[in-house]
C-alpha cells in the first residue's frame, strides 16, 4: 500500500482539521512511510482513514502515536556519551544549578543515560531535568523507568561501552551496572534504581506548537534524532526557540547525523559533537 503525494496532502489537512496536530511541516518522505504504516496497522484503505479521522477523536490520538517514531536506546552512540562525560559536563562542575531540557525523550532511555553520567560525576543533585515528548504513552513508560527484560544484554553492553572506558586516559572504571538497574524477575522487567529515578520531570510538549512555554532558560538542551522528521523551516523555528531558551555558555546536543550547517549563522557554533550558543 503506497499513498500518493496528493493523498498525503489530503491526509495532512484532514488531520489538522480534526485533531490538535499540524503535520504540514513534517518531512514528507518519513511521513508518507508512517501513513502507509498506519493504513496497514489498522487495516484501512485511504478513504476509510480520512473518514475515521473526521469522526473519531480517540482514533486521531492513536494515529499520532503511530506516526511518531519512538526509537531510542540506552547510551545510543557511545562516542557522544564519552564526550559528554569527559569534555562537556566538566565545564559545568562549578555551577551551582544546572538546567537541562531533553526534547523528544521517547521512553526515557537517554534521559536515564544522562542521569547515570550525572550521578557518576556527582552532579545529579544540582541538576533540574525536564524531559518532554509528544507521545503520552512514551512519557508514562519513561516515568515508570521499566524496560523489557529482553533488553538486558543490550543494556549491559551499552553501559560498559559508555561508562567503563575512558578514551582519554585508558583507565577502566569499575562501575556496577546494578547501581542503576535492577532486574525484576516477577514483572519481567529491568527497572531503574532510586539513584536515577524521579530525577527528571516528564512533560508533554508538541515541538510544532511549542505549547508548553518555558519561563526559564537552560544550560543544556538535548534533542536527538527528532528534528530529522521535520522540514527545514520547522527545524529553523525550533532552533530559534532553543536559542532564546538557552543561557549564555549553553550547549545543544543533536543526533550524530544531524547538522545545523544549513542554518549555521550567528546562533550556534560547533564544538566537537556539540553546538555552543554564540554570544
Amino acid at each position: 500500500m503506497e499513498i500518493t503525494q496528493k493523498e498525503l496532502a489530503e491526509f495532512i489537512s484532514c488531520f489538522k482539521l480534526h485533531s490538535s496536530y499540524d503535520l504540514s511541516d513534517y518531512s514528507e518522505n518519513s511521513l508518507m512511510r508512517r501513513v502507509d504504516k498506519v493504513l496497514s496497522d489498522n487495516s484501512l484503505n485511504f478513504p476509510n482513514l480520512l473518514h475515521k479521522i473526521s469522526t473519531d477523536a480517540v482514533f486521531c490520538e492513536l494515529v499520532m502515536k503511530q506516526i511518531t517514531v519512538n526509537t531510542t536506546e540506552l547510551f545510543r552512540d557511545t562516542l557522544l556519551w564519552q564526550e559528554l562525560q569527559y569534555k562537556l559536563l566538566p565545564l559545568f562542575e562549578t555551577k551551582q544549578k544546572i538546567r537541562i531540557w531533553h526534547a523528544g525523550c521517547s521512553n526515557g532511555l537517554e534521559v536515564y543515560s544522562l542521569a547515570i553520567v550525572l550521578h557518576h560525576m556527582n552532579l545529579l543533585n544540582r541538576c533540574t531535568i525536564v524531559a518532554s515528548d509528544i507521545n503520552p504513552d512514551m512519557l508514562e513508560q519513561a516515568r515508570k523507568g521499566e524496560y523489557s527484560l529482553r533488553l538486558l544484554d543490550e543494556f549491559k553492553a551499552a553501559f560498559d561501552n559508555a561508562m567503563k572506558e575512558n578514551p582519554y586516559d585508558s583507565e577502566f572504571k569499575n562501575l556496577s551496572f546494578e547501581t542503576y538497574f535492577e532486574v525484576n524477575k516477577k514483572k519481567e522487567c529491568i527497572a531503574v534504581t532510586s539513584c536515577i529515578k524521579d530525577k527528571a520531570e516528564f512533560v508533554r510538549i508538541d515541538l510544532v506548537k511549542m505549547d508548553a512555554q518555558f519561563d526559564e532558560t537552560f544550560d543544556i538542551i538535548l534533542c536527538r534524532n527528532v528534528l530529522i522528521y521535520f522540514s527545514n523551516s520547522l527545524q529553523k523555528r525550533i532552533f530559534e526557540y532553543f536559542y532564546t531558551h538557552m543561557n549564555p555558555e549553553a550547549y545543544l546536543i543533536l543526533g550524530m547525523q544531524e547538522s545545523m550547517a544549513w542554518f549555521m549563522n550567528s546562533m550556534f557554533e560547533k564544538k566537537g559533537v556539540f553546538y555552543k550558543k554564540c554570544k
Partner: peptide, 21 residues
C-alpha cells in the same frame, strides 16, 4: 547510509535519515 539510520532520498535531491523501526 550511517550506522543505525535508514537513508532515503527526498524530492529536492537531498539525503534524509530516519530511525524508524
Amino acid at each position: 547510509a550511517p550506522s543505525n539510520y535508514h537513508l532515503m532520498v527526498d524530492d529536492d535531491y537531498t539525503c534524509s535519515l530516519s530511525t524508524e523501526q
